[in-house]
Design a protein around this nucleic acid. Structure first.
Lengths: 185, 185
DNA sequence: ATACGATTTTGATATAAGTCAAAAAAAGCC
DNA sequence: GGCTTTTTTTGACTTATATCAAAATCGTAT
């Protein structure tokens, strides 16, 4: 069973017919560290899962890269704007380690939502969970100091600290690398 | 047709049977300015729509109130945590003007999702739209200065500026009232 | 119109975090 | 192992925003 289907099953019952249809539309990729999966401006996008690897989403602000999120193994994710709307992505998705990805395109998924309406339960649950995660990030940015945001990241994604360099983490937290270095000390 | 059903219909097709079931479970409230609709710690919650009025969601941080969002007429909203999970709300919802509300409880809604699985399409679309709005707020908090966040608020919810006092807006932006006063000048 | 409470503005000073430059440390590479 | 490149830390100084206190303005009821 592919890891994408495994993730779907966490959110609700997926019968064998639909699972087979998802299987048929799942694409596997192997990507080297540094390669991109999605570029700013693209419309085509997917939900995807890493069976191994690490990923970051970033965008450009005044010519500088800023990280918007990181993804580890066995989580389902996608770029919100192109997955949930017709609008192009404003973010880029890049691999920080060699990675294996299982992905289903938005077009294929929308077709399945249409043919098998009961799949919308899983789609709803996923979007609802994304809301929870986004709200937690909003709270962190809204109410916490730089040092507190760093603590929150450690609490929510403890592995990241050892896999990602300081500059990437600082830009995710919305502070400079120098400030983060001072916080850590 | 009640305003809650009108909102649902924006997100997808709602047949007459389901519309009637929603109608049956919709509750109408009239609330005076200053009254609360939801208190921190409550589990019971709802999706709701104001036909007239204005609402704020706030929480306590170090004994101070901070506003997390504002709601105007003819938008659907709810408190994310109690609506999308079993967890109690960390926020309070209070009316800033006399308001008329049409609400459906999470329990009733979940029952309808179960009986009429096709309703999950609308539920998915709503949650997906919430994600878009939350992501926009994250971008604002993550990348913008206080003055830029104020501009973003004016762009996204231009009416609020005239209906809500400075202190409330400042706390929503994550700055002090004094700073906002200086930005405005 | 007047007086009261609520809201907004102003001023002086303090603090958190940013910037720029350079040094130190760590990771890759032949 | 020594050399290069990348990453992290340190230092000096600047800027954005917070804090505390007080004054000014606005809104509303009498």
């Amino acid at each position: 069973m592919n890891p994408l289907i495994e993730q779907f099953k966490k959110y609700g019952y997926l019968n064998e017919v639909i699972a087979a249809e998802v299987e048929k539309r799942t694409r596997y990729f192997f990507k080297k560290k540094g390669e991109h999966f999605l570029r700013e401006g693209q419309h085509a996008s997917s939900y995807f899962v890493l069976s191994t690897g690490l990923i970051r989403a970033y965008f450009l602000k005044n010519g500088r890269e800023m990280n918007s999120w990181f993804g580890e193994e066995n989580q389902i994710f996608g770029s919100i704007l192109p997955v949930y709307t017709e609008k192009p992505s404003f973010e880029n998705i890049q691999f920080l380690e060699d990675s294996e990805i299982y992905a289903i395109s938005v077009d294929d998924l929308n077709e399945l939502y249409r043919i098998y309406p009961e799949l919308n339960l899983i789609g709803r649950k996923i979007a609802e969970e994304v809301c929870i995660i986004l709200e937690e990030r909003i709270m962190s940015l809204h109410t916490e100091s730089a040092a507190e945001r760093y603590q929150s990241l450690i609490r929510l994604q403890p592995n990241l600290i050892n896999r990602i360099n300081l500059g990437h983490i600082a830009s995710y937290l919305g502070i400079t690398q120098e400030t983060l270095s001072r916080i850590r000390r």
